[in-house]
Amino acid sequence: MAQTENYQLDILTSDDFVTEAWVQRLVKVLDRALGEFLQQWMLGGVISGWSLGTDKTVSAGEGVVNGCHCKTTTSTDISGILASGATNYVYATNTSTSAPDGDVAFQATQVAANIPSTAVRLGKIVLDAAGNVTEADDNPADCPRDYAKPLRYRRIGGQWSGTITAGTSVYIAVDHSSTLSFDVPLGLEVSAPADVHCVVCADGTDGGQFRLKIWNDSTSNDVTLTWTRYGFA
């Protein structure tokens, strides 16, 4: 039986199902919608639990790992993946059954830079040469834990005023990061006089700031713009 790309949802292919085409389309749409939301909009990380213990365990918890909502209901023994006489950076990664079943695997490395970009960092456990735990830290400076931040739809607005010589164009930058920085920017609306034209620049625009190219085709050198930006933060 065929399965969808993201979450291995079954796609019916038997001629016995008279609504086969409709069911296939519904399943594929559902898979694509879930995949797009969790992978692109829902930031990965720990939602709750998954604390590192001095008994070489990861407590029960849940999080979003590489686009999959994963959960454990009991503590997990990770003694088998820890190296003695070393600092072990522990992380969560998904498995082939993470999408349909919420399974998760815990791994460790002695080099924080080797943690896969799709994994969720949990912290570090330090073992002495005899294999005894000397430190278990959920949020160390050299391997800060990844948290799944709840996203809220937010809006922010402001005004820009300046001098632009009539008949010329300039680039301006607006930095609103001290007030609000978007994790997922969605749009920007700029209101300007009819004879002043604006284009948003991709270069220099991110969740906390944006750049505009402004053409002043009016007879006045004084230009005032109002702007509204929205997205998830």
Rank of each mutant, 00 (worst) to 15 (best):
T73N: 14
E20A: 08
D16Q: 14
F37R: 14
Y153P: 08
V120L: 05
G80C: 10
T109G: 12
T134E: 08
A233Y: 08
K124T: 02
N88C: 03
N132V: 05
I11D: 05
D217P: 06
T74F: 13
L188M: 09
K213N: 14
T219L: 13
G204A: 07
N132W: 08
W227I: 03
M1K: 11
I47P: 00
S191R: 15
V111M: 00
L186M: 12
F182S: 00
Q3V: 14
G162A: 06
S218H: 04
P185A: 05
Q159F: 02
A108K: 10
E5P: 11
A108I: 10
K149H: 09
A119S: 11
L122H: 00
V27E: 13
E189S: 13
D195C: 09
S169N: 15
G131K: 13
T163R: 12
Y7P: 10
E20D: 04
A112H: 04
K124P: 03
F37L: 14
G131A: 11
S178D: 03
S48Q: 12
F106V: 07
T76P: 05
Q110D: 10
G53A: 04
N216H: 06
D183M: 09
D206L: 08
V133T: 14
T226G: 07
R32D: 15
V23K: 04
V18F: 15
T165G: 02
Q209E: 00
N94S: 11
T54H: 11
T54I: 13
S48Y: 15
N66T: 05
D183W: 04
A119I: 04
Y7F: 15
D101R: 13
G44M: 02
T95C: 03
Y230P: 03
L30A: 05
V184C: 12
S177R: 09
V170Q: 02
S79R: 11
D142Q: 10
W215C: 09
F106D: 04
K28G: 13
V27F: 10
T134L: 09
A233T: 11
T205L: 06
G158T: 13
F232Y: 15
R154G: 00
S48V: 13
V27R: 07
I125P: 00
A148Q: 12
N94T: 13
A113D: 07
G167H: 01
P116S: 02
Q24L: 00
V170I: 12
L186G: 06
H69Y: 14
H176L: 02
E62A: 15
I164R: 00
P140I: 06
I156Y: 09
G208Y: 07
L30N: 06
G44Q: 05
G204N: 06
L26C: 12
P116W: 03
L34P: 08
K71I: 11
T228V: 15
K28Q: 15
D101V: 08
A129H: 11
E62N: 15
S84Q: 10
I164K: 01
C201Y: 00
T226C: 09
P150T: 11
